[in-house]
Design a protein around this nucleic acid. Sequence first.
DNA 1: ATAGCAATAACCCAATTGAGGGTATTTTTG
DNA 2: CAAAAATACCCTCAATTGGGTTATTGCTAT
Lengths: 214, 214
Amino acid sequence: MLEKIKVSIVEDEPEIREGIEDVIQKSQFFICVGSYSNAESLLDNIDKVEPEIILMDIGLKGISGIEALKLIKKMNIQTAVVMLTVFEDDEKIFNSIIEGADGYILKKTPPQKLVELLYELHYGGIAINPQIARKVLEMFRAKPDKKIDDLSDREREVLNLIIKGYTHKQVAEKLFISPETVRGHLKNIYRKLQVHSKTEAVAKILHSNPFQNK
Amino acid sequence: MLEKIKVSIVEDEPEIREGIEDVIQKSQFFICVGSYSNAESLLDNIDKVEPEIILMDIGLKGISGIEALKLIKKMNIQTAVVMLTVFEDDEKIFNSIIEGADGYILKKTPPQKLVELLYELHYGGIAINPQIARKVLEMFRAKPDKKIDDLSDREREVLNLIIKGYTHKQVAEKLFISPETVRGHLKNIYRKLQVHSKTEAVAKILHSNPFQNK
DNA sequence: ATAGCAATAACCCAATTGAGGGTATTTTTG
DNA sequence: CAAAAATACCCTCAATTGGGTTATTGCTAT
């Protein structure tokens, strides 16, 4: 039999903590190597215990789950951090993902499913309820912006160069047109996007689809 | 028994298409209501058949899977589109997600798992292999940028207002400091981010973490 | 077909804003 | 205490913006 995967738990509600401990201990793949009611205790022991997976309640007193996540990810160790929550809190899910969480599981996830998700995580996947995954993708999805669709191809071309930091003059040289024409395009862009400066136009474009100019 | 969920398949390799058809037909929850070797045929029949889920090969001849996805999403109908692929092609995964795919499944997914994923999809989730989910999240994850970490709180505050399109003067008023001080902060920001204009600074910040200013 | 419209291109003037180079004081923090 | 951050001011020049005008091209809808 393979070595069991070491899991630590951080959860302030004793009932839930013990419930999860139970599930972990009973599974054939995992072993619980530490169970804490706060992030501070985990951080004190993490170097000794070396858990491969940490299940972290997102709403902890003292150091919050997300702060703990940040600290652990800064430590540069081989530890997956899976966030636990009772609520489907968009803001927290979002921040967890940004900060590098390796999973996001609802506490109400049934034991069998929980183990299954952790198993997927350990083998190159991510531990996430499909409902949460949907939320995440929707957050990241480019929101179609009618205004931006209205830009002509040439206007988009100009704006993309502006984003890269080129001045009017430089854009003009790149596109073989007069700087005054660049200005003409910009005026139209400002009107269409309802903004009044390059900065705002850039912010608008990058917010609506931050990846188009990667 | 509940009504079966209607599934259409678009896949040009007959063997794979028939394999998936089989899996769908044998499951108790789904029924196959159309199986096509190209996107054109699907689009011709979609209004008649009204599938609730479409399994779409990503690499189709003629109209590609992603183009078909775009067209279907524009139709404003209640149809989930799940992309199928043999390869773990980052670029295509990325574009599918951006365009609103409701899932992304590897063709090698075992039948039982496939049905399970589609079931999750139908009940508010998303059909995605955990390995793919990981890839997607990594793509969207903010790449930590040492330069941006170097900004002081005040500098970040100034930059966030600049992103919103405020001029130096307006930022100064908001923060109750002199416009010259705003300029001072901006000089330091430019030095730290190694840029030379507001436009570049905004682009840099938004590219590194496009969501921090939502 | 043709009148109208949007896109593209180019120019003018006036006023504001931004950037690059300094310098200096106070406060906060390691 | 020394370093960093935050504050504020100077000058100069370039860049940007907002208000106009004009002309050509090409599509589109009556």
